[in-house]
């Protein structure tokens, strides 16, 4: 069988392709906001996050205070803290402090979701493979978008916008089809998210995701407790 690193690379391909299209848009946006190509790429290689970067560019463009920048990043990216705790339960024995320090940089929604969906524990090499290819997609997309955003036909860049969401559906639908508990949690989270999007519009998108996910997961844990890792099938 393939080495864990190559397996990670392979599992990261859809993430990298999705990132390529999303960060392409970020690159265009950053340059429009007055940043140079180098600055746009520097943001992507040091942050590796979509919503936080988009908000950050807005604050830079408006010359907002540093504290606003720090608080905005804290709030939008707070979900990574939750994901980090969740992922910490799936780590193989090869994970010591250095491996954790490196892997922490690559905790994104997509990398977390794909690695969480793996059977059993994950190894550092597997995580590095997935993070590496995703990082390349994210950085390259930003560079291309910032440097040449206006060259590609609009129809193509528009259609690329759905790639990541298609991948999300591919992650959540099979388990939701199999387990009533996951189906309930997924439907609740989607319903809460729709409510925030159309009704409680004062809540920013980062908070809406946090509230929806926490609410749906709490209800799921309350109604359908999962016995242990092996008990997932029984849920």
């Amino acid at each position: 069988m393939r080495s864990p690193f190559v397996k990670g690379l392979y599992h990261g391909i859809p993430i990298a392709l999705g990132y390529l299209s999303v960060s392409f848009g970020f690159g265009i946006m950053a340059v429009r906001a007055g940043l140079s190509v180098l600055e746009a790429v520097l943001i992507s290689v040091t942050n590796l996050t979509s919503a936080g970067q988009a908000a950050g560019v807005g604050i830079i463009a408006a010359s907002g205070p540093y504290i606003e920048m720090a608080l905005t990043q804290l709030l939008i990216n707070l979900r990574y803290a939750l994901m980090g705790i969740s992922l910490s339960q799936k780590l193989d024995d090869k994970f010591h402090t250095p491996q954790r320090l490196i892997t922490a940089f690559g905790i994104t929604d997509e990398i977390f979701a794909v690695s969480s969906a793996q059977e059993g524990k994950v190894t550092p090499a597997y995580m590095y493979g997935m993070i590496f290819i995703s990082f390349c997609g994210w950085s390259l997309g930003t560079l291309l978008g910032a440097a040449a955003g206006s060259i590609l036909p609009g129809a193509l860049t528009d259609a690329m916008g759905i790639v990541l969401y298609g991948m999300f559906l591919a992650i959540i639908i099979p388990p939701a089809r199999q387990h009533k508990s996951v189906l309930l949690v997924v439907c609740l989270a989607a319903a809460f998210s729709v409510a925030f999007y159309y009704v409680f519009t004062a809540v920013s998108s980062g908070f809406a995701i946090i509230f929806s996910a926490i609410g749906a997961s709490l209800i799921g844990a309350w109604l359908f407790p999962v016995a242990d890792e092996a008990g997932k099938e029984a849920a």
């Binding site: 969480s116 388990p175 989270a189 989607a190 844990a221």
Partner: peptide, 15 residues
């Protein structure tokens, strides 16, 4: 159980 459901809930809410 809560942590088990979080990734699915996050992705559903984002999608």
């Amino acid at each position: 159980s809560f942590l088990y459901y979080v990734p699915y809930a996050v992705l559903a809410a984002m999608t």
